[in-house]
Amino acid sequence: MSVGSEDTKDRAGYAATSDERHRERMQRKKELIDRKIARATIERGVLVVNTGNGKGKSSSGFGMLARSLGHGFQCGVVQFIKGSFSTGEEAFFRRFEELDYHVMGEGFTWETQDKERDIRAAQAAWAIAARMLADPGYDFVLLDELNIALAHRYIALDDVLAAVAARPPQQHVVITGRGAPDALIEAADTVTDMRVVKHAFKAGIKAQKGIEL
């Protein structure tokens, strides 16, 4: 047998062994995941909190909104901060009859520069959100940037905790915004803390339609 033939045979044997090891690893992984899935038997609404300084908190919430609408859920959205400018998500999602959409903020706090006005806007938004959280007709509720209103103490944290705890058993709730309070994180079922690695704005690139707007 030539040297070239031996090399080809060795490579083929190595590839076969590597494939077998891969199959064995994937089989063990599948068995582990299947066991975890089998243990997850509770079916109820979940409270999701997206926080942190990184981009994507609201985007993730609206992604879950799209998924919920795809399943035919009745959904509600309350935006606590955004409001002084139009966004792509508002333009897109308002076309759905299954969605009750409220933009209640008057812009970022450094834009309004009026604390009492911000408090009134936040509390008006919370009144609508509290109504949704008490209504079993809503399957999914997105409270966008609520964490910011909580961080500024425009809304009482105890009121929010009581409302999410007393909501209908099958209702899903997503709360976004940086600075989520510890008590809300503790109450949540799923928490994601988004971290900044790079952001185009720091390089002087303005907010772009489809990305930030």
Rank of each mutant, 00 (worst) to 15 (best):
G45C: 03
G137F: 04
A121Q: 12
L143S: 04
G56R: 13
G88P: 01
T51P: 00
G52D: 07
C75K: 05
Q123L: 10
Q74Y: 06
D139G: 15
A129E: 12
M64G: 09
A66C: 06
L69N: 08
I128W: 05
K115D: 12
G76K: 03
C75M: 05
K36E: 13
D144P: 03
R39T: 08
W110Q: 12
G52S: 08
V49R: 11
A127L: 11
G63S: 12
W126F: 13
P136L: 05
A121Y: 06
A122N: 08
F73G: 03
F93Y: 14
G72M: 02
V77G: 04
N50I: 00
I42H: 05
N53C: 06
L47W: 04
W110G: 00
G88R: 08
H71V: 00
A40F: 04
S58F: 10
K115I: 10
V77I: 09
K82N: 10
V48S: 13
F92E: 12
R131H: 10
G52F: 02
S84R: 15
G61P: 01
D118M: 06
L69E: 08
E116Y: 05
F108D: 01
D100L: 05
I33Q: 14
Q113V: 03
E43Q: 10
G45Q: 07
F140G: 09
L142C: 09
D100I: 03
K82S: 07
R44I: 01
S59R: 14
S86D: 13
F108N: 11
G54I: 00
S86Y: 12
A66Y: 01
A91N: 09
S86N: 13
Q113E: 15
G107Q: 13
S60E: 10
F96Y: 15
L133V: 04
R44D: 01
E97W: 04
A91H: 07
Q74M: 11
R131V: 01
